[in-house]
Write a protein that binds this DNA or RNA. Structure first.
Lengths: 197, 197
DNA sequence: ATATTTGCCTAACGACTGTTAGTAAGCCCG
DNA sequence: CGGGCTTACTAACAGTCGTTAGGCAAATAT
């Protein structure tokens, strides 16, 4: 699907990405300027171009690496051989963990990638569609096996993913609930809704 | 909470708002320019200022009117005297109907309002918080009455609202599912997850 | 018939956008 | 010691941004 961003990046590039993730997610990609980014890093705007050729290349790098995180954590769980409900449980937990570990980048995965231009935009859309298909397949299988309630498949998929994706909007590292607790409760809540008692 | 936008607007203002809703939701508020908006209306950019004093005033008007729609449709259902599960069902159905009827404006209600400046920004955030509180209250009541499963209240609220809010991301007017069907299935799915069988 | 308002226009403003050219200091490696 | 790579700089480019000033014609009100 997407090229794997495995090449080691210079520490400076990583610092730029980290700051860009913060800015792009807090202000939005369009509203965040290269001058904002440079200032956050304590350098002049033109210096950014010693590392990246364009603003969009930074967005693209963030988007790729974040998608890679999601795919790598969740897809193996989808491909397992356990019963659908168990696999879905593992997928939910993995997805939540990635969202929280990449809280800023997740905004790019969920929304800001739309500011990419072709052909990256279409490529990225396809990779997200494939990711969602993994959830839909498990749901379909569970419904076929009579474990999940019969219902419109797409709707269940959307409900499931929306609950998971919204986590980045309300999770606070200093909040009351931490990762394992969120995983437990959200997985239970969602599976309760899907499963036949 | 928010001033009610009841004053009748000129048809031209309504046309501008309609076009701005499309643009702001499709491209994002920052990425959509006044020149884009003017072109979509077939006029010159400067002409927009015969109707609105600034770009942000347009955003503010859209945001207010959309929040009004949500509050007006959902809060009465929250204040009813039926059992919590029934009231929640009505709130879910009303919310979905408003999301779909205002598909473009919903993006502003959910996200783009962040581009407002103070004091509008804080005012709007408070109005959204109040809206979410209405859902949380019903959940709390249902949990207290032993109708809903015991669980962290905030988490349930977030799960519920995220499923509802994401509808604007996947609903298509020409798609297979239409409003009543979506209302039925989504309400059932969510209440199944919350309710004790 | 005259005055006022409405809705658009042309032209342009200063600020800000992403980006480029050219340069120089500090570093690793031969 | 010297050459190239890295990382930063200053200065500036053309383009776009939201917005304003001022005018003109048609519709509306008096």
């Amino acid at each position: 699907m997407l090229p794997v961003p495995d090449e080691a990046l210079s520490t400076r590039k990583l610092e730029i990405l980290a700051e860009a993730r913060k800015l792009f997610s807090r202000k939005g990609y369009e509203a965040a300027s290269m001058r904002d980014l440079a200032e956050a890093l304590g350098i002049k705007p033109a210096s950014l171009y010693s590392h990246y050729d364009s603003k969009e290349e930074i967005l693209w790098e963030i988007a790729q690496r974040c998608a890679h995180e999601f795919h790598e954590a969740v897809l193996p769980a989808a491909a397992g051989s356990e019963p659908p409900a168990e696999r879905l449980d593992r997928m939910i937990r993995a997805h939540i963990e990635v969202v929280i570990r990449n809280q800023d980048a997740s905004v790019i995965f969920f929304r800001e990638w739309r500011h990419l231009h072709e052909p990256h935009r279409s490529e990225y859309a396809a990779s997200i569609a494939a990711y969602e298909q993994a959830f839909e397949s498990v749901l379909r299988e569970g419904m076929g096996a009579g474990i999940f309630r019969p219902a419109p498949l797409r709707l269940n998929t959307h409900m499931l993913l929306s609950s998971l994706n919204w986590v980045h909007r309300w999770y606070r590292p200093d909040g009351a609930m931490q990762v394992p607790e969120i995983q437990d409760h959200l997985s239970k809540l969602l599976l309760n809704g899907l499963r036949i008692p």
